[in-house]
């Protein structure tokens, strides 16, 4: 399972590095969002600092959705997924590999986004370790649910995935935003219950994904 997962993740990252689909689409999108928020809130630093956690996470969620869609598109091209299935490749390995690749891709996005916010909104980042850990957990949570639901909606039109995905991961948005808010306010103790819920969500769906992904591929 882990050998397959590693091969899968390496393959997806290599494909992304070569095609740069996400890099070319998501990074510009991030800057557009930052600029739009600055316009929308009249470039008032106090307000921008306040909305930073929400801005960060809403943007990241859209980035994640794009990354998940792309991860599925890779397998749809030339029906590579049928090849994987027909060679009896371990579905759990496929699932884990996809999750790892998406999380790593989105971490890059998050670094750029938070740096952009810190500089352009003049909003210093405190408790970077807490922010990073919660980001990692939230990304894992969204990516696991996303890969399962992307399998479920595969070939059924693109608008179905966000419709199914966003309500399910809405608690992640809530938790991650709260953790960031407390982190940036330098009151990290208050972030503990929210972090625990993030851990719980990610673990539960990681297990669910590992258990059902074989069925998803067969469907």
């Amino acid at each position: 399972m882990f050998r397959t997962a590693v091969a899968m993740a390496k393959k997806d990252l290599r494909l992304e590095w070569r095609a740069r689909v996400l890099l070319n689409q998501v990074l510009p999108f991030v800057f557009v969002v930052i600029v739009l928020f600055a316009f929308g809130f009249d470039a008032k630093v106090e307000i921008l600092t306040q909305v930073t956690p929400g801005l960060f996470w809403v943007t990241t969620f859209f980035g994640l959705e794009l990354a998940i869609t792309r991860a599925m598109a890779i397998e749809g091209e030339n029906q590579a997924q049928v090849g994987l299935v027909m060679m009896g490749v371990n579905p759990r390995g496929i699932f884990l590999g996809k999750v790892v690749a998406i999380v790593l891709e989105i971490l890059v996005l998050e670094v750029v986004l938070s740096a952009g916010i810190a500089v352009l909104f003049n909003s210093p980042l405190h408790d970077v370790a807490l922010l990073a850990a919660s980001a990692l957990l939230a990304d894992v949570g969204v990516a696991t649910v996303g890969i399962v639901l992307a399998g479920v909606t595969e070939g059924l039109g693109g608008s179905l995935l966000p419709l199914l995905l966003f309500p399910v991961v809405s608690p992640v948005l809530l938790c991650a935003t709260k953790v960031w808010q407390y982190g940036l306010d330098q009151t990290p103790a208050k972030a503990i219950p929210w972090s625990e819920l993030l851990i719980g969500f990610s673990l539960i769906y990681l297990v669910v994904g590992i258990l059902v992904y074989g069925v998803v591929l067969e469907g």
């Binding site: 393959k11 494909l15 091209e77 030339n78 029906q79 590579a80 090849g83």
Partner: peptide, 11 residues
């Protein structure tokens, strides 16, 4: 061995 190539374009 199917009609479709079942390979990745950018590898």
């Amino acid at each position: 061995l199917a009609h479709s190539y079942q390979m990745y374009e950018d590898l």
